[in-house]
């Protein structure tokens, strides 16, 4: 298990370099010159501009520039935001926890909804419950997150006036009230993200349980007198989860995409909305850094999915 973990982590290193190369290529290929303004300014002589270019190494060969860029990224020197005038890493560290809390709760919600419903559907296939659940799941994953978000706001904030639709990080108050306000404002973003995720997970779960339930070892478990609950949890669900984890792992990039949209709709101050505001403000260092952070988050979550996979199916780590 430990060796497997190490091996999987080491595989990430070339992937990370690959992704950083892709990002760097995009940045280099992009038109526009950081010293363009100086070129059109008649007060700046061309020699000064050339000196500046040489100082920042813009005329060096590409591999040298790539190596320098990677080195400074690894040192934690992520540059300086043009707009908010602070270091990019400070800005991201301020915003990251909010994103992780919202995303984590949404995943939890998705698991809590999808696993029981998918399993129950598969135990009674083509029953009324199964048909309703399957239809709802289909509708759920056909609804784009931005539209679900607007529907939630329309229903829960405007018509019923139950929940606030703007996420605030500066809530006053202490103790229980403070927690309550935080939970209240997180309900809609978490629900939008979680339910979208739950919809596809329910379908995966139903299909996986249907495959597992007629296998011989389930019959064996029943035959040796295990209770229905133990059979279900330890023999059916655990084995059905193996393909589900793979399918969910493939969707991880989509989940982070959904996070950007929901953060933007509900104005959650996370890194997703930071990405959008910096794009609109032409704040290139922040845009690059947030994109890179998203890549790292995707890689770390797929690593976590692999670990879960190895725990569910110990044969994998011996391969």
């Amino acid at each position: 298990m430990y060796k497997y973990f190490l091996r999987r982590t080491l595989i990430l290193i070339p992937v990370l370099f690959g992704i950083s190369a892709v990002l760097f290529t995009i940045l280099v290929m992009a038109p526009g010159d950081p010293f363009e303004e100086l070129a059109t300014n008649p007060n700046v002589p061309p020699e000064v501009r050339m000196n500046l270019r040489a100082k920042f190494g813009l005329d060096d060969p590409l591999p040298v520039r790539y190596a320098r860029w990677v080195a400074s990224m690894m040192r934690g020197d992520w540059g300086f935001s043009f707009v908010s005038r602070v270091n990019v890493d400070t800005l991201i560290l301020q915003r990251l926890p909010t994103t992780l809390v919202v995303l984590g709760s949404a995943q939890l919600l998705a698991i809590l909804v999808a696993i029981p419903i998918g399993t129950y559907s598969a135990l009674r296939p083509y029953s009324i419950f199964d048909q309703i659940a399957t239809t709802l799941a289909f509708i759920g994953f056909s609804l784009p997150t931005f539209f679900t978000g607007l529907l939630f706001i329309l229903l829960l904030s405007i018509h019923l006036d139950w929940l606030p639709f703007i996420y605030r990080s500066d809530i006053s108050g202490t103790g229980w009230r403070w927690y309550w306000e935080h939970i209240r404002q997180a309900i809609m973003p978490v629900a939008v993200l979680g339910l979208a995720q739950a919809a596809s997970m329910t379908r995966f779960m139903r299909a996986a349980v249907l495959d597992v339930i007629r296998l011989d070892y389930v019959n064996t478990a029943r035959a040796k007198g295990l209770s229905e609950g133990v059979t279900l949890v330890k023999h059916v669900v655990r084995n059905a989860l193996i393909p589900v984890v793979t399918l969910v792992a493939i969707q991880i990039p989509t989940i982070f995409g959904g996070a950007i949209v929901t953060e933007q709709i509900f104005r959650v101050p996370g890194i997703g909305s930071l990405l959008i505001t910096s794009i609109l403000a032409n704040d290139t260092p922040v845009v690059m850094a947030v994109t890179f952070i998203f890549s790292i988050l995707v890689l770390v979550s797929s690593l976590a999915a692999d670990m879960l996979y190895a725990w569910l199916d110990p044969r994998i780590s011996y391969r």
């Binding site: 992704i19 940045l27 526009g32 995409g257 990405l275 794009i279 845009v287 890549s295 995707v298 890689l299």
Partner: peptide, 23 residues
């Protein structure tokens, strides 16, 4: 292919549109 699967789709889409839009 594996590397492309690990790319964060929407952020990258936004980044490319942002950088190449004007050109």
């Amino acid at each position: 292919t594996d590397m492309f699967l690990a790319l964060p789709g929407l952020p990258l889409l936004l980044l490319i549109v942002y950088l190449f839009r004007d050109a």
